[in-house]
Amino acid sequence: MESKNIVFNAENRERLQKVLAQAGVASRRHAEQLILEGRVTVNGDTISALGTKVGIKDHIEVDGKPVERFEEFQYYLLNKPVSVITSASDPQGRPTVVDLMKDVPTRVYPVGRLDYDTSGVLVLTNDGELAHRLMHPSYGVEKTYRVWVQGPVGINALERLRQGVLLEDGNTAPAKVERVSGVLKRTNLDSKGDHLEVLEVTIHEGRNRQIRRMFAAIGYPVVKLERIRFGTLTQEKTLCSGAYRALTRQEVKELRSTVGL
């Protein structure tokens, strides 16, 4: 049955794809695809048209599984360790960030990704609309990374980062780059006897392995990478690797304000 012939509860209705995103089923864009593929039903009727609105009393299923409608969203900050997958599951059986959140009573999902070998600040939530906006490049949410490379890094290389680097998927947007220290000697990362330099780089894009590819493109492969800021949230020394905490109401308010919510 076509959705235009279906009558749903009229009070407090929202677009179906928005409700799916808010429930943590998928990003809004992916939710739209699920609808177009006919994988979503409302009150037993298959929906295949975008723009359909639903009320709180409507029963929604995706691929035959009921969608849990969250009355209260949960927000967490995780200090992601290396060797952990930023995903809800992994076919290779490697540990995931969701595995680290088993004590959380509500299922939450990572906002964006941190590479397997990258550590640091990661937000997890069941607020699909906030997650969508935080990840969407049009909102320009800044992420700051601490980067260890074999140095010293030349000024021309730094300027290339600040102006944008040509990668296989196009030019990157200009990055903010600052030296954190001079060349470091005798570090535990110094496996080849070379000296390491520490930089802080801020970007607002979210391409796959972007920081590593940017530094490889200018001739300075990354030795270690750590995200120290995501939007308004910064890394905390008291939050050890693998630990997490709930965000405060003020932190959630500031994070939502960043993306116009």
Rank of each mutant, 00 (worst) to 15 (best):
residue 234 T to V: 15
residue 172 T to H: 02
residue 191 S to F: 14
residue 138 S to I: 02
residue 162 R to F: 03
residue 237 K to P: 12
residue 198 V to Y: 11
residue 227 R to K: 08
residue 191 S to Q: 12
residue 220 Y to K: 03
residue 127 D to A: 07
residue 195 H to T: 14
residue 192 K to F: 10
residue 155 I to E: 15
residue 227 R to H: 00
residue 215 F to V: 03
residue 239 L to I: 09
residue 183 V to A: 14
residue 198 V to W: 04
residue 246 A to S: 15
residue 161 L to W: 03
residue 151 G to S: 14
residue 128 G to H: 08
residue 156 N to D: 15
residue 245 R to L: 00
residue 200 E to Q: 11
residue 179 R to Y: 06
residue 141 V to C: 00
residue 130 L to I: 01
residue 134 L to E: 01
residue 184 L to W: 10
residue 233 L to V: 07
residue 126 N to M: 06
residue 133 R to H: 06
residue 229 R to N: 11
residue 215 F to N: 09
residue 240 C to E: 15
residue 216 A to M: 13
residue 177 V to F: 05
residue 222 V to G: 04
residue 126 N to L: 09
residue 236 E to M: 15
residue 165 V to P: 01
residue 185 K to C: 10
residue 144 T to A: 07
residue 222 V to E: 09
residue 211 I to A: 09
residue 219 G to I: 00
residue 137 P to A: 03
residue 171 N to L: 15
residue 147 V to T: 00
residue 248 T to D: 01
residue 226 E to N: 13
residue 197 E to A: 01
residue 127 D to C: 09
residue 250 Q to P: 00
residue 142 E to C: 07
residue 147 V to P: 00
residue 128 G to N: 01
residue 219 G to T: 05
residue 219 G to M: 06
residue 234 T to D: 13
residue 192 K to G: 13
residue 165 V to L: 05
residue 204 H to C: 08
residue 146 R to W: 08
residue 160 R to W: 09
residue 145 Y to C: 02
residue 201 V to P: 09
residue 183 V to C: 14
residue 242 G to N: 11
residue 125 T to H: 00
residue 198 V to F: 09
residue 220 Y to L: 10
residue 228 I to C: 13
residue 125 T to E: 02
residue 210 Q to I: 04
residue 141 V to T: 03
residue 217 A to T: 07
residue 247 L to G: 12
residue 186 R to K: 12
residue 211 I to M: 07
residue 185 K to F: 14
residue 133 R to W: 11
residue 142 E to R: 13
residue 145 Y to H: 10
residue 121 V to M: 05
residue 173 A to R: 15
residue 208 N to I: 10
residue 166 L to D: 06
residue 124 L to S: 01
residue 119 S to A: 14
residue 155 I to R: 14
residue 202 T to S: 04
residue 126 N to F: 02
residue 130 L to T: 02
residue 136 H to L: 13
residue 186 R to M: 08
residue 186 R to G: 11
residue 166 L to E: 04
residue 129 E to C: 04
residue 153 V to W: 00
residue 122 L to V: 11
residue 231 G to D: 00
residue 196 L to M: 07
residue 159 E to S: 06
residue 135 M to V: 06
residue 178 E to R: 15
residue 243 A to Y: 09
residue 170 G to M: 09
residue 241 S to N: 02
residue 234 T to E: 15
residue 202 T to C: 01
residue 193 G to M: 02
residue 249 R to L: 13
residue 222 V to P: 09
residue 239 L to F: 05
residue 143 K to M: 11
residue 182 G to F: 06
residue 232 T to M: 02
residue 167 L to V: 06
residue 218 I to E: 00
residue 133 R to C: 03
residue 139 Y to S: 03
residue 247 L to R: 11
residue 225 L to V: 05
residue 157 A to S: 14
residue 143 K to V: 08
residue 249 R to I: 05
residue 234 T to Q: 15
residue 119 S to G: 07
residue 162 R to Y: 05
residue 128 G to M: 03
